[in-house]
């Protein structure tokens, strides 16, 4: 998993794995990657210094540290899932890179399929080569129905062909922003995308220093 946690340069073409349904709306990064995990006995939970042990801590464990049976990844059928099917506005709230990396470390989640995502999550997920797919609620409900009746059957997410393949039924097509898709397919880092435009950026800055000098003079004790 360490390899996956490296930022940028992660390519994504096809992922095959088990899916877990988590159909709540507005799940915040406060829930996914809580800031405060004091009092959690993470070594006993098999975590040690591994932050994955604290992913979803507040809804994953009882007060005594035992796993809650109603939390999806604690259920036998979903324990090794690497695809999450989620509701609306998933991972809303704080920009926590840990909102991406903790489930990655804990379960190796590589794909999120949801109705919509939080305002900052999409950017963060992309940084770690994690694919996010947006689909309408009806389609998600169909996927969940398939998942719940096909425990142990792996689904295949093919970014090259933009298809979700569910054995035993027609594949489900999805769309991704062409730029995001290329970035994932080729594992491009933001800096590689920016670099060719740096001369233009510098020229623009020089012009701006003439046009809006006050932005750059701020804090100059000599003024």
């Amino acid at each position: 998993m360490r390899q996956v946690l490296q930022r940028g340069g992660q390519s994504f073409e096809v992922h095959e794995g088990l899916a877990a349904p988590f159909m709540f709306d507005n799940v915040s990064t406060d829930v996914i990657a809580p800031a405060l995990t004091e009092g959690l006995d993470t070594p006993r939970l098999g975590g040690g210094s591994n932050q994955g042990a604290t992913a979803f801590a507040n809804i994953r464990y009882n007060a005594d540290g035992t796993p809650r049976r109603d939390f999806v990844f604690n259920q036998e059928a979903y324990r090794t899932a690497s695809i999450m099917v989620v509701g609306k506005n998933y991972a809303t709230g704080s920009s926590r890179i840990t909102g991406v990396t903790r489930p990655l470390a804990a379960w190796g989640v590589r794909v999120y399929i949801g109705e919509s995502f939080g305002p900052i999550f999409l950017t963060n997920a992309l940084q770690y080569g994690v694919l996010t797919i947006e689909l309408p609620r009806e389609t998600l409900d169909e996927i969940v129905e398939w998942v719940e009746s096909h425990h142990g059957v792996r689904m295949k997410v093919d970014l090259q062909r933009q298809l979700i393949e569910l054995p035993g039924r027609d594949p489900i097509p999805f769309e991704t922003d062409p730029r995001v898709r290329n970035k994932l397919l080729y594992g491009l880092h933001d800096l590689e995308e920016i670099e060719p435009h740096l001369p233009a950026a510098r020229a623009k800055r020089e012009q701006d220093e003439q046009e809006r000098p006050w932005i750059y003079d701020s804090g100059n004790p000599q003024r």
Binding site: S28, D30, V31, T37, G39, A57, N58, I59, A63, G93
Partner: peptide
């Protein structure tokens, strides 16, 4: 600004 589960501390 936030009242999500566990935002201000556990439980």
């Amino acid at each position: 600004n936030r009242n999500y589960i566990g935002r201000q501390g556990r439980e």
